[in-house]
Design a protein around this nucleic acid. Structure first.
Lengths: 257, 257
DNA sequence: TAACAGAACTCGTCATAACAAGTTGTGCCA
DNA sequence: TGGCACAACTTGTTATGACGAGTTCTGTTA
């Protein structure tokens, strides 16, 4: 391997070459090249990928190396293979790990997803019983409600309904909520030290309004998360997050911390 | 492969042979043999497994076949590998899929786990606000509470606190709750047609009582599920399930149904 | 007796090769 | 023109082999 030569690979995107001199294993480099092509849309969902033989030639490596790379992508759910037929790009079901509290954009960006939000509404409302319980206030007290429709790779993926103490909400609405995560704004611009969130996850059936926003059928399953985010003991941000059940999943892992 | 000869493998348990004539791939048969040994305790958690060379000899196959089998077990989280050191049995973190409503025993048995319960208490109590809300009754109304400590492969794994309408609870307590799932009793003995459950999943910190029952530290993370099980529109069984966070996980998958 | 070098072990990576099993395309014949 | 056989493609399985990189063991020397 130390005598590897660098091999350029004809591809739609520049920079997609594997480097035989690199300490990174060949199968890992190839996997990353293919993953980028899948995530950036070079390979469209459900499209057939080049055959293993073709990739052998294109990358100049053995079939076992190609199969190792493809096996990893299959494990991640990015592709599926059909014996005798070929390898195909899976419609990627995006996921967010719940092992660490993160805003949506910052969670998805490292995996190559493009995200942004459309503001649906931002207004002061009277707290419902559930919201009040979460903030430790009385039902009817004022809270600030912000509703957003979130997009993942230009597809609607979730509806987020967030509640804040009014003072925070009024400031938030002055910020760019389309491209920035509220968590980042709270920390970097407002100086809050977010510490933890209480999560609840359930599957629900889309009502007419949610279905319309998300471009799904009424009655379709949504993944609903309630998330109460704190700074120390102070409740800051209570959210209902509704995700398309067919396009998103949470992977929940509990670790001793 | 059609000319394969059958190879007997020295093992602690009979029946652990691979059959070269079988249409099942060799790497799959080997994987299953190893999985059985892991799950039945032949290989203790964290114990080192035979090396790849040793398994090659024992099973009479090539190293790639052994590595394929081990790779699958690693993918499942049953083993872990350390380069230069060996392969080790992971302390298996049991999991229950949430794609289908199941009682604990019926969920775990197909994966080779041994389960049973110890009854902690069974009594009629006044419904708390949460419990009342779930049953659509008034706080203070009577419900029947059954508390159990659940074991998985003879280790305490969860504390279950279940609530029923009193009439159902009184009948349940007459049954064998140590070895049988309540869901099975409700369906087979009582004739209820369980249809669905509402789940909520969160991680909590073990209080003193839960920690003591589960053999874990106070403050250790527990996976807590609230599960409301219905027969049609009728709420039948409301439960708080507390699982050791270090030993159990739910894998949640939302599918269009 | 301790330290170090080298051997012998481990898993990781990559190559070449062959055949099985499934799918698709093509050419030929009735 | 349709059906069938066969070729040519695809991925799946398995083999042999070699070397890299990490860990452990053993023997020798100071």
């Amino acid at each position: 391997m130390s005598s590897r030569k660098q091999i350029a690979v004809v591809s739609k995107t520049s920079g997609d070459a594997i480097d035989a001199v690199s300490p990174v294993p060949l199968h890992t480099q190839i996997r990353e090249v293919l993953r980028r092509r899948i995530l950036d849309g070079s390979y469209a969902p459900h499209s057939q990928m080049p055959s293993e033989s073709q990739m052998m030639e294109a990358f100049g490596v053995s079939r076992i190396t190609i199969r190792q790379a493809l096996g990893d992508l299959q494990k991640e759910g990015l592709i599926f293979k059909v014996m005798g037929k070929g390898s195909f790009v899976a419609k990627p079901k995006a996921f967010q790990s719940l092992s660490r509290l993160q805003g949506f954009g910052e969670a998805m960006a490292p995996s190559g997803y493009e995200t942004y939000s459309m503001l649906l509404s931002a207004r002061q409302v009277e707290a419902s019983q559930v919201v009040a319980a979460r903030f430790g206030i009385r039902p009817g007290d004022a809270v600030f409600e912000i509703q957003r429709l979130r997009y993942l790779n230009r597809e609607p993926i979730s509806v987020d309904v967030s509640y804040f103490p009014p003072a925070i909400g009024e400031r938030l609405v002055q910020e760019d909520l389309a491209t920035r995560d509220i968590f980042v704004i709270l920390e970097n611009d407002f100086g809050h030290d977010l510490t933890h969130a209480d999560l609840q996850i359930e599957a629900i059936s889309a009502d007419e309004s949610l279905a319309r926003h998300l471009g799904t059928d009424e009655g379709a399953p949504l993944l609903r998360m309630e998330r109460m985010t704190y700074a120390g003991e102070q409740p800051l941000d209570f959210e209902f997050l509704y995700y398309r059940g067919d396009a998103f999943q949470y992977r929940l892992r509990i670790e001793r911390s």
